[in-house]
Design a protein around this nucleic acid. Structure first.
Lengths: 158, 158
DNA sequence: TGGAAAAAGTTTCCATGTAAACATTCAGCC
DNA sequence: GGCTGAATGTTTACATGGAAACTTTTTCCA
């Protein structure tokens, strides 16, 4: 009776109900998703957050920095740094509009447009159904559920 | 013709296909999930990662630190810091087994057990279906899809 | 056996992201 | 007009998490 109950195999752990915890599974899924992303963009130094920002600026030229931050759930302090880097890299243009000199309006430079055009396809393909081992229908379902989950959130409680 | 196409409303942005990007939606979902978590544990200072670690140690007393890290996809360097903090807080016990003095085996102290018992219910309840605005069936489906997604991952490519 | 290679953690340094205090500018009211 | 308060970003200081180099111990094999 000296054999311990647990840890018969040192590497097979009992997780209990953890795989039924949404928070835990979301974390694992995101790690997995990041792995896919960085496999696709192994050589070039494209980062998910940065590319998302460029994407949205491209679709909304002249967007206000704050609106962008709120929409993508990026904190203002962080957005400032992201924008500074992208401006430094010549991808984004900052403009202080005379109508409200507190705010900052963002648009893509030609280099930014080129960057977006170049990687747009890869970005969309990264999480295509077959790439992640789901059927087309499962993938749609998953996206629908995640959308619903996200929209439940209270919008900007102050 | 001086009215711009986009940005008619400064705060309503066109996201294009972004809501159909799994990576993006996973990020939003996790942010939403964190918000739920921290609303539940507003006063007490329970953190998701830390509690998960305590949970698994509780289920697998004597688990090796490395096995824990691999299972939860926490990097060894980070795990070291987590464990140091939990030991400092008196929740976890570290033990160097004489059979392999490189490794570290972890178990809960009585205080750790008490902590686990005390918050276990809340932890499970945080993401119950009705809390997150999904039906019971949707919640099950979502978890199943996330599980499938995660399991597709190549196991520990060296 | 004894020396090279692997395994397990730790340390150090860095990137990412947040919170709190701080300008600056605008809006509204007296 | 001029002051108060809100809105918008920025700065600073800190927390979180990861990569790479390092230490110690074990394994393996010549």
């Amino acid at each position: 009776m000296n054999a311990p109950f647990t840890t018969l195999d040192d590497d097979t752990l009992d997780l209990g109900d953890l795989p039924r915890s949404l928070g835990f599974m979301l974390r694992l899924a995101q790690i997995s998703s990041f792995a896919h992303f960085f496999r696709e963009f192994a050589d070039c130094d494209v980062k998910p957050g940065e590319f998302t920002v460029i994407w949205v600026i491209g679709l909304n030229p002249g967007v206000k920095q704050g609106a962008l931050a709120r929409t993508l759930h990026i904190k203002p302090a962080h957005m400032t740094k992201l924008v500074q880097r992208m401006v430094r890299d010549g991808l984004v243009r900052r403009e202080i509009p005379s109508e409200d000199r507190r705010s900052v309006r963002l648009s893509l430079t030609p280099a930014g447009e080129a960057h977006l055009k170049r990687y747009r396809g890869n970005f969309l393909a990264v999480h295509s159904a077959e790439r992640i081992g789901l059927t087309e229908s499962e993938s749609r379902q998953l996206l629908a559920l995640l959308n619903k989950l996200t929209l439940q959130e209270a919008p900007e409680c102050p």
